[in-house]
């Protein structure tokens, strides 16, 4: 969705929340239209909700709550951090933008880890931001293997593969090793 559409959706969601909230407060008797509405036009729109019969009051309250929830959900979806944070931008020039999903880098790192002898299991996580690539990986290592040798081999292999793949340096590579199996999550494929 482009920026204009997103701004429009945010404004619509805000209007929905404000309108539903105002009607709800008036219907519940929490506030008078005079307290809520700064203009006569708005007061005229809100005043019919002050003297509803029981059936219409219940319906109004239900609809207002539903509208409030819809508005809040829309606002949350639109204002949450951009999905672009899941992406690493490789190129941005007058011809367009080239991006790669962060997960694909993590999958590659995990796969390369599995190729190193002595690694029982590995799980990589990639954090990107401001063009940087930071890889954090947990390793379960064979008890008979040399931990320094295995971690060095994993580090070199992962760094080489990822840097070749994305065409830019890995800013940080952190390996946490253990002899026990990793607690949960998917195994190295």
């Amino acid at each position: 969705m482009n920026v204009v559409n997103r701004i429009l959706l945010i404004l619509v969601a805000l209007a929905l929340v404000v309108a539903a909230g105002a009607v709800l407060l008036v219907t519940l008797g929490a506030l008078d239209p005079e307290q809520l509405a700064p203009t006569a036009w708005l007061r005229d729109r809100l005043s019919p909700f002050t003297d509803l019969d029981d059936r219409n009051r219940a319906w109004t309250i239900g609809v207002c709550i539903a509208a409030l929830l819809v508005g809040l959900v829309l606002l949350m979806l639109e204002l949450k951090p951009s999905p672009r944070e899941d992406w690493l931008t490789l190129v941005q020039d007058p011809l367009g933008r080239v991006t790669v999903r962060r997960d694909s880098i993590a999958r590659l790192a995990t796969r390369e880890t599995a190729q190193v002898p002595g690694v029982m299991e590995g799980r990589a996580e990639v954090v990107t931001g401001k063009g940087q690539i930071r890889i954090r990986e947990r390793l379960s290592i064979d008890r008979t293997a040399s931990i320094p040798a295995v971690t060095q081999a994993v580090g070199e292999r992962v760094r080489t593969a990822v840097e070749h793949y994305v065409g830019r340096p890995v800013t940080e590579l952190r390996l946490d090793t253990q002899l026990e199996p990793l607690e949960s999550g998917r195994r190295v494929r």
Partner: peptide
């Protein structure tokens, strides 16, 4: 033309 390219996923060869 403005061309955005996104690499959504990667198919990996089998282990080994």
């Amino acid at each position: 033309a403005w061309i955005d390219v996104a690499i959504d996923d990667l198919t990996l060869p089998v282990e080994g």
